[in-house]
C-alpha cells in the first residue's frame, strides 16, 4: 500500500512538473505546480511528517501559488511569446542538467548505501516540532518573523505607485 502510494505520488509529482514546463500558459503552469506541491505534501506525509505536509499544502500550494496566480493575472501576457534568440544556451543548459542528474545519482549511490535501512519511528507531530521551535530554534524562529515583516513591507513599498508617477 505504502509503495503504491509512493509510486503514484512520485509519478504525479514529476508529471505535474513536466506539465508545468511544457504548457505555454503561465496560469496553467501555476496550476500544474499546485498539483506537484500537493503530491510532495503527500510524500512528506509518507515520510512521517504530517505537520510539514499540512504546512506545505497551506502555504505553498495555497498561499504562495495563489499569489503567483494573482500576479499572472495582473501581468497579463498575450499569447505567443517570441521564441528565444539564443538557442544554444538552452541546449547547453539541458546537457548540463543531465550531467548534474548523473552526478547526483552517482553521489547518492556512493554516499547513501549504508543508510538504506530507515530508522523510522519518531513521528513528526506538531507538538514536538513546536517544542523544538521554541527551544532549540528559538532565535532563528524569531528572526524569521523579522524577515517576513521586512518582506511584507518591502513588497508593499516596491509595488506601491508613487504619487508623482
Amino acid at each position: 500500500m505504502e509503495l503504491f502510494l509512493f509510486i503514484l505520488l512520485s509519478i504525479l509529482c514529476i508529471g505535474a512538473v513536466l506539465g508545468m514546463i511544457i504548457v505555454n500558459n503561465q496560469a496553467y503552469s501555476a496550476l500544474f505546480l499546485v498539483l506537484a506541491f500537493s503530491c510532495t505534501a503527500g510524500l512528506f506525509a509518507l515520510l512521517d511528517a504530517p505537520f510539514i505536509a499540512v504546512v506545505q499544502i497551506i502555504i505553498y500550494a495555497g498561499a504562495i501559488l495563489v499569489l503567483f496566480i494573482f500576479v499572472i493575472m495582473m501581468v497579463d501576457i498575450k499569447e505567443g511569446l517570441t521564441p528565444e534568440k539564443k538557442k544554444w544556451t538552452m541546449a547547453l543548459a539541458c546537457i548540463l542538467a543531465v550531467v548534474l542528474l548523473i552526478e547526483l545519482l552517482v553521489a547518492l549511490k556512493s554516499a547513501l548505501s549504508p543508510m538504506a535501512t530507515s530508522v523510522s519511528g519518531q513521528a513528526g507531530n506538531a507538538s514536538e516540532i513546536g517544542h523544538l521551535l521554541f527551544t532549540k530554534y528559538l532565535y532563528p524562529f524569531e528572526i524569521t518573523s523579522v524577515l517576513i515583516i521586512a518582506a511584507m513591507v518591502g513588497a508593499i513599498v516596491l509595488v506601491k505607485k508613487k504619487d508623482s508617477e
Binding site: K86, T89, M90, L92, A93, L96, A97, V99, L100, E103, L104, V106, A107, S110
Partner: peptide, 23 residues
C-alpha cells in the same frame, strides 16, 4: 545582462564543485 547566461555559469560552477566532491 541576461539572467540565463549568469545562471548557466552558476550551474557550471556547481557542477564542477559537485564533481570535485563526487569523483
Amino acid at each position: 545582462g541576461l539572467i540565463k547566461d549568469y545562471a548557466l555559469v552558476f550551474l557550471l560552477g556547481a557542477l564542477i564543485l559537485l564533481g570535485y566532491f563526487v569523483f
